[in-house]
Design a protein around this nucleic acid. Structure first.
Lengths: 337, 337
DNA sequence: GTGAAAGCGCTAACAG
DNA sequence: CTGTTAGCGCTTTCAC
């Protein structure tokens, strides 16, 4: 790899002049500039980003930390973020925290160690230590999806209450009263909001909630399958299920099928979040969808803006809450008599 | 951030002693070692990986370059690779090449610039310039999925011919003769192999292939949908479709549904590669699946092995070809009379 | 306009 | 056993 010294030698100038010229950060112009530029071309010089990082304390990397990499919802966000970042000459480091607070903190430390320019974080940790740990980090952070009390940072997410309210209302309008909710990870902001949206809507409609029909999931298919199995094998089983996210819905649907029930004839089903390839899933699931391109675009833009603005810390924390859109499928019907 | 100097000062030794001690690369032992270690703890010292990289020329990063990040098949591999890498203290940079050779080369240059320790590459580029470009790269590369003629590197992929042969045979056994194939990206190794597996099997069975039923796709759903539409609206439409990958199959299925055909009664369908949530897709698609955990494990192990062995270049290139497994669903039936 | 020199944080000879 | 020192490649004052 050619270094700045090679260029300097070939151009017959000092290395500082080369740096000044190539970065257009000095008064080098005209013939000298041309000569340096040509020399750089000739030896195939590209500045070593590692050396630049050491000097500047910032790397042209951005981190993306999520709970579950294989969730298709995340895959599509990553795709957009990566595209956007590369346009701006940044590479994206991806890491999965699971639901392990310690692991998440360790990952953030690793990223801080690499002097990444910023992080898009879908926070899954909990507890005061966790919050303190994040606040201590020096790099710009953008919170995605889950909001964390006590952390001042840009936030991009959706109106989770509204999403579940819309779906709950939809089910109520079909005549359901025994509605079950398989929730997300207890304690997580989105999960609690979604549950609250459900409970509020039920209450507003004057429908008593059977607490035993509100069960906790973990945003994963296996757990959802198990919980749905439990719910549906009860004598007083629910007539409808509100799933906390896409894979929860798919897990529930599988349980419905495996038990020999028909959706929507026997059980109605709705999902918060988009379901991948929903068109070829039978029945098409009624869901509250968020705009993935919008989430990805705002997140990337805001983070890169904060990274590149002269004083990123000066920008006050912003919040972008997306309104979910109800997409009606064929997974809901009147409750069986 | 505490530097090695802070530790040295607190422990009352020189910085080199600290380095030697903490890296266990010198003869520092006993009381001095303890004191240094304690001091490191006290100031919260963690070696700056950027500085280490500048010195060593290797970063504790590995790159992963694929054609399409949002393909669920890739998501699951990434998940495993990331987990494995983090265990070994490496972070993973993810990037999407699309089908753009120039973009892929640019990404590889970026990664080389960051002095990543190695790259897992699912190559999509083409042409002699491309091959030369890759060979010029100094870092260890592991080829995933697609093999590239002329590049000496570890390769992990599956027996693509066998996969499509198995499925083709399956369709033939059901009595199909007018079988269509929606292929992958023309020119890509996997795509050509899969097509060859299809053609060979047809020939071996003595069934003439209608060339017009062999159409090219791009491993993407939209294109597959369009091609399936075209195939199925012909008067002499095929009775079965062999899709080149998972999303191709889903695109085709959607076309089948949208045209009012029933699968498998009217059209049989098979897929190379796993389909996510295949259990809740109706009908369950018959497919040739590869073991994602195995692919991910071998890839990660081999790459990290090459990275960490004293002379990685000394290990001769290895090849791991996975045997696909036939998973029979309900997407195949006798051709309609 | 241009160059010399300091230094980012670390590792690794080489002396002592 | 430990300290001194010379870089890794780059940016950035500060002189000239």
């Amino acid at each position: 790899m050619a270094t700045i010294r090679d260029v300097a030698k070939l151009a017959g100038v000092s290395i500082s002049t080369v740096s000044l010229a190539l970065n257009e950060t000095g008064p080098v112009r005209g013939e000298t500039y041309q000569r340096i530029w040509q020399a750089a071309q000739d030896v195939g010089y590209v500045a070593n980003p590692v050396a630049q990082s050491l000097k500047s304390g910032r790397n042209r990397l951005i981190g993306m930390v999520v709970g579950n990499i294989s969730n298709p919802f995340f895959g599509r966000i990553l795709q957009e973020v990566e595209r956007y970042a590369l346009d701006k000459n940044h590479l994206v480091i991806v890491s999965e925290s699971g639901t392990d607070t310690a692991r998440e903190m360790a990952i953030l430390d690793h990223l801080a160690g690499q002097r990444v320019a910023g992080v898009i974080l879908s926070p899954h940790g909990r507890g005061p230590d966790y919050v303190a740990h994040i606040k201590r980090l020096k790099m710009p952070i953008l919170l995605l999806d889950h909001k964390v009390e006590g952390i001042e940072a840009d936030f991009v997410g959706s109106d989770n209450r509204l999403a579940s309210a819309m779906l709950t209302e939809h089910l109520i309008r079909w005549g359901h009263t025994r509605i079950a909710h398989i929730s997300g990870i207890p304690g997580l902001w989105t999960a609690e909001e979604r549950k609250a949206g459900f409970l509020d809507t039920m209450q507003a409609a004057g429908i008593p909630v059977d607490e035993s029909l509100v069960v906790s999931g973990d945003y994963e298919g296996d757990m959802a399958y198990a919980q749905a199995m439990r719910l549906l094998t009860r004598a007083d089983r629910p007539t409808a299920i509100l799933a906390a996210n896409n894979v929860t819905a798919l897990g529930a649907l599988q349980a419905i099928n495996d038990l020999g029930f028909k959706c929507p004839e026997d059980i109605s089903l709705t999902s918060i979040d988009d379901v991948p390839w929903s068109n070829v899933i039978t029945p098409r699931i009624t869901m509250a969808v968020q705009s993935v391109p919008e989430i990805a675009r705002i997140s990337s833009e805001w983070l890169l803006e904060r990274i590149h603005s002269r004083d990123g810390r000066a920008i006050p924390p912003r919040e972008h809450i997306l309104a979910p859109r109800l997409v009606v499928g064929q997974s809901c019907a009147r409750p069986a008599a």
